[in-house]
Computed example of a mutant assay.
Amino acid sequence: MPPTDASADTATAPGSDASAGRSPATDGEDTLHLRLPEEFLALCAKADADATRDQLLDRVGDWGRTHATVGAFELVPVEIERDLPLITRWMNDPAVAAFWELAGPQTLTEAHLRAQLAGDGRSVPCLGVLEGTPMSYWEIYRADLDPLARHYPARPHDTGIHLLIGDAVDRGRGAGSALLRAVADLVLDKRPACARVVAEPDLRNTPSVAAFLSAGFRFSAEVDLPAKRAALMIRDRSVRDLL
């Protein structure tokens, strides 16, 4: 006689969990309570942090070389072990120290750099390499995510620039304004969401303010910042082709 419906419903297929004496429910609970290794979780967290760090400024390290009127130029993200002695020497130049206020032992410059490198990527310290030679220090930063945003009407994706020319031989011959123009163009090329490049040089630093003006920035306002009275300089994407 063929099995009734009831007996068919309770039949056990060969090789099933029930026929092997295991409970599917128990196996499911084991899976739900599976704990991933701490090393794997740490690796995932680092990958997420690295992705965020790269996204905030659209991977500055991948922007590549551009051509300024003074030669081929590239922004290269700082590596502490490689670049710290050079940047420390620049910071101790009296002309630089007057406005950056980082003169002193190497540990002072190191702390300034590491604070950015350990952050979420909203500020990226870079060497400016002209024709293969490091000659300037740059910070490319998200001005809309910076304390500066409390002092002016910031817009999403405003991108800021800090710059120092390392050696006296490279100053006063137009290199600063040429490189500022090139880097501002690079920002606008590589960051399509950014409509403005901004800067806030010390108002007393008239050569720096003049270099920004020559690079196509406009003077927007005087801004009282915690450490200085600054000239707010803005380069607008909307008038880029007119400059």
Rank of each mutant, 00 (worst) to 15 (best):
6 A>W: 05
10 T>E: 07
10 T>A: 03
11 A>P: 01
14 P>V: 09
15 G>D: 09
17 D>R: 07
17 D>V: 04
18 A>I: 14
19 S>F: 02
21 G>L: 01
21 G>R: 09
23 S>F: 00
23 S>Q: 08
24 P>E: 04
27 D>S: 02
27 D>K: 04
29 E>C: 01
34 L>I: 10
39 E>G: 10
44 C>K: 12
46 K>E: 12
47 A>N: 14
48 D>Q: 12
51 A>G: 07
53 R>M: 10
54 D>G: 13
63 W>K: 15
64 G>N: 12
64 G>W: 07
65 R>P: 03
70 V>P: 00
79 E>S: 05
85 P>I: 02
88 T>H: 01
91 M>D: 01
93 D>N: 10
94 P>T: 11
97 A>Q: 09
97 A>M: 08
98 A>Q: 15
100 W>L: 11
102 L>E: 09
102 L>F: 14
104 G>Y: 05
108 L>F: 12
109 T>Q: 13
110 E>L: 08
111 A>L: 07
112 H>M: 06
113 L>R: 11
115 A>T: 14
117 L>P: 08
119 G>S: 14
120 D>I: 14
120 D>C: 10
124 V>M: 11
127 L>H: 09
128 G>D: 10
129 V>R: 10
131 E>L: 08
133 T>S: 15
134 P>M: 04
137 Y>H: 07
142 R>C: 03
143 A>C: 03
144 D>W: 07
144 D>L: 01
144 D>R: 10
147 P>D: 07
149 A>F: 01
149 A>W: 00
150 R>I: 00
151 H>M: 01
151 H>W: 01
151 H>R: 06
153 P>A: 07
155 R>L: 04
155 R>T: 09
156 P>E: 13
157 H>S: 06
157 H>M: 02
157 H>C: 06
159 T>L: 00
160 G>N: 02
161 I>H: 02
161 I>M: 04
162 H>N: 07
165 I>N: 05
166 G>L: 07
167 D>C: 02
170 D>E: 10
171 R>A: 04
178 A>I: 12
178 A>M: 05
179 L>K: 15
179 L>W: 05
180 L>N: 10
185 D>P: 04
186 L>W: 05
192 P>N: 08
193 A>R: 13
193 A>G: 11
193 A>P: 06
195 A>E: 12
196 R>F: 01
200 E>V: 15
201 P>E: 11
202 D>L: 12
203 L>C: 09
208 S>C: 10
211 A>Q: 15
212 F>G: 05
213 L>S: 07
217 F>I: 01
218 R>I: 01
219 F>H: 11
220 S>F: 04
224 D>K: 11
226 P>R: 14
226 P>H: 09
226 P>W: 09
228 K>S: 13
232 L>G: 07
239 V>R: 08
239 V>D: 13
242 L>C: 05
242 L>D: 12
243 L>C: 08
243 L>V: 03
